[in-house]
C-alpha cells in the first residue's frame, strides 16, 4: 500500500512538473464554441468497423440553452503524438480540440487546467510546508535550547495559535489584504499565512526533542569542546528532530492543499484566469455542475488522490495518520508517538 501511495505521489509531482508538455492546451486558452463540452473519448475503431490510429470525434452543439453536445461521427480527427510541443494533441486543434476531461464553463480544457493547477496547488503547499519548517524549527529550537521565560513565552504563543481554527485564521489574515491581488502576491501571501498557522505544530515537537537532547552526552561534549550556542543548536541538536519534522511536513502538505482550495473556493484565493485546484472548484460551484457537468469536479478527485497517497505513505510511519483531519482544521495535540522527549 505504501508503494502505491508513493507511486501516486510521483505521478502527481510528475504531472505538475511536466504540465507544459503533458497538457494539450494552455491553461487559459478558451474555446468559445465548446462551453461545458463533455470529455472527448479517444477511439481506435470507426463506426464501419475499420481500425485506425487513435482519433476523436468532434462535438457539435445540439442545444445551446442546455449546452448539450453530440458526437459528429462523420469526420474523424486524428491525434498526434508530440506535435507542437505537446505529448498528445488533436490534429485539428481549432475546431476539434482534445478534451480528455471535458471543458469548463469558459470552454477551457479541464485536464490542462488540472495539470497547471497542480503546479500552483502542490507548489504552494510545498513552499508553505517549508516555511512552516523554518519558522517552527527556529521557534522550537530557541524555546527548547533557551528554556526559562523565553520558552514559556514562545510556547504560550504557539499554543494559542494551535487552539484557533486554522481556516478562520487564514481567512481573517487573507481578508486584511486587498481582495484582488496579483497571482504572485497571492502565492507568497498564502504561503506566508499557511506557514505561520502550521509552524506551531512543528515548534512544539522540536522544542521537546531539543530539550531532551540537550542533556545528552554528545551535546554536552560539543559544548565543552567549545562549540557556540548556535553551532550546538543547529549542527547537533536540530538534526535529532529530523524524523519528526519530516513526518509533520508530510502531514502539513495535504492540510495546505485543502486550505488553498477552501480560500480559493470562497473567492479569497487566486484571481480568476489563474488555474489552481481551488479556483477550478470555485468555477464549478454551481448546482448544474453536479448534475450535468460532473467532469468539472475533477480537481476534487485529484485532491483526494494526493491526500490519500500521503496518508498511505504515512500509515506505517511512527506518526499515526489520525492527526490529518485535525490538521485540516488545525488541531493537533493528539500524541504523535509515545513522546520520546516530553
Amino acid at each position: 500500500m505504501r508503494a502505491f501511495g508513493s507511486f501516486l505521489l510521483v505521478v502527481a509531482i510528475a504531472a505538475a512538473v511536466g504540465a507544459p508538455v503533458l497538457a494539450p492546451h494552455a491553461g487559459d486558452r478558451s474555446f468559445r464554441a465548446l462551453l461545458n463540452a463533455p470529455p472527448t473519448v479517444p477511439h481506435v475503431r470507426a463506426d464501419d468497423g475499420s481500425w485506425h490510429a487513435p482519433f476523436i470525434y468532434r462535438w457539435t452543439l445540439v442545444n445551446q440553452l442546455e449546452q448539450r453536445y453530440e458526437e459528429d461521427r462523420s469526420t474523424r480527427t486524428a491525434l498526434g503524438w508530440l506535435t507542437g510541443g505537446h505529448l498528445l494533441e488533436s490534429s485539428d486543434d481549432e475546431r476539434s480540440p482534445l478534451f480528455l476531461l471535458g471543458a469548463d464553463s469558459y470552454g477551457r480544457d479541464v485536464l490542462s487546467r488540472l495539470l497547471f493547477g497542480a503546479r500552483v496547488s502542490l507548489g504552494l503547499a510545498a513552499v508553505a510546508a517549508l516555511g512552516a519548517l523554518i519558522i517552527g524549527a527556529s521557534i522550537g529550537g530557541l524555546a527548547g535550547y533557551a528554556g526559562g521565560p523565553i520558552d514559556d513565552l514562545l510556547m504560550r504563543a504557539s499554543d494559542f495559535v494551535l487552539v484557533l481554527p486554522a481556516t478562520y485564521v487564514a481567512l481573517a489574515l487573507r481578508s486584511v489584504m486587498k481582495l484582488v491581488l496579483e497571482p504572485r502576491t497571492v502565492f507568497l501571501l498564502l504561503a506566508a499565512i499557511f506557514a505561520v498557522v502550521g509552524a506551531p505544530f512543528i515548534a512544539r515537537g522540536v522544542r521537546a526533542i531539543v530539550r531532551s537532547e540537550r542533556r545528552l552526552d554528545y551535546a554536552v561534549a560539543a559544548t565543552s569542546l567549545g562549540a557556540g550556542h548556535l553551532r550546538v543548536l543547529v549542527r547537533h541538536l536540530l538534526p535529532a528532530a529530523r524524523g519528526f519534522v519530516m513526518v509533520q511536513m508530510t502531514m502539513l502538505v495535504p492540510a495546505f492543499i485543502i486550505a488553498e482550495a477552501t480560500l480559493s473556493y470562497v473567492g479569497l484565493g487566486f484571481p480568476d484566469p489563474m488555474a489552481s485546484w481551488g479556483t477550478m472548484l470555485h468555477d464549478a460551484s454551481n448546482v448544474r455542475v453536479f448534475a450535468d457537468f460532473p467532469w468539472l469536479l475533477s480537481p476534487a478527485a485529484a485532491m483526494f488522490l494526493v491526500v490519500f497517497a500521503l496518508n498511505l505513505v504515512l500509515e506505517r510511519s511512527n506518526a499515526s495518520i489520525v492527526p490529518l483531519v485535525f490538521l485540516v482544521g488545525a488541531q493537533t495535540r493528539v500524541p504523535l508517538k509515545p513522546d520520546s522527549a516530553a
Binding site: 495535504p254 485543502i258 482550495a261 477552501t262 473556493y265 472548484l281 448546482v287 453536479f290 448534475a291 460532473p294 469536479l297 476534487a300 485532491m303 483526494f304 491526500v307 490519500f308 500521503l310 496518508n311 498511505l312 500509515e315 495518520i321 489520525v322 490529518l324 483531519v325 485540516v328
Partner: peptide
C-alpha cells in the same frame, strides 16, 4: 476510514452534494 481520512469536509460535502444532485 483511510479513504475517509483523505476526504476533509471540503471534499465530503462536494461528494455528498454530488450524490444528492444525482
Amino acid at each position: 476510514s483511510l479513504v475517509l481520512l483523505s476526504m476533509p469536509p471540503l471534499l465530503t460535502s462536494l461528494f455528498l452534494i454530488f450524490i444528492a444532485a444525482r
